[in-house]
Amino acid sequence: MIDTVNPIIAPENLIYAKSEVLLDNIMHYCPGCSHGVVNKLIAEVIEDMGIQQTTIGIAPVGCAVFAYNYLDIDWQEASHGRAPAVATGVKRLLPDTFVFSYQGDGDLAAIGTAETIHACNRGENIVMVFVNNGIYGMTGGQMAPTTLPGMQSSTCPFGREASRDGHPLKITELLAQLPGTSYVTRQAVHTAASVRKTKKALRLAFENQKLNKGTSVIEVVATCSSGWKMTPVQANKWMEENMFAYYPLGDMKNE
């Protein structure tokens, strides 16, 4: 096998290479987790734009808490839900840098709702990357603000019931209403085509920041096979059939 593959590894045959912004540390994400793909896409966009030296990432509390081990840029690790406020502090004091927050649904749409809405409402000139897997991955699969009706989690073992647990929060639609946001989109990373689209969306968001256009919000509807108790393949299928119906993909705002 090696004998047949090795000669093929030649510069002229390479169509894909690992981003230089991506470190060699082994990712702690579960197999099939969307976080790894989104981390990688951000690394690629940073490399493509040549902004590795001037980008500061704000990591959340959630499964992406150690994102700073994967991207070779400066990072700050925020407390749960406060990444948009931390990002505000960074961007206001270093307006010439590129600043993004990276947050899960619990972080962005439950405990940090106020920080999220107000950062967007002020039109903070930052990128918010929002990984919506409909569950609390890091703490072991509890109900999230975005958990679908009927969907099971360890804190709604018989399924989410709107009358008791409230409705899944479409926070991205809400953020698109705010004059402070300039680009609000919902994407996914489960197919090659969707990965390419998400990368394009991320690129646009960072370009917007260069142009001082206000807040860009990139939601990525994601799988959490561990939290959902599915194989990665099942999780992708379940996401397509159920999550996309409630969280339709596409741009909500592009100004």
Binding site: Q76, A78, A85, V86, G89, V90, L93, A114, E115
Partner: peptide, 16 residues
Amino acid sequence: ESEIASINMVYGGAGC
């Protein structure tokens, strides 16, 4: 928007 936000903005700025 709150003291929670203020202190975290301070965190961001202090980190720089």
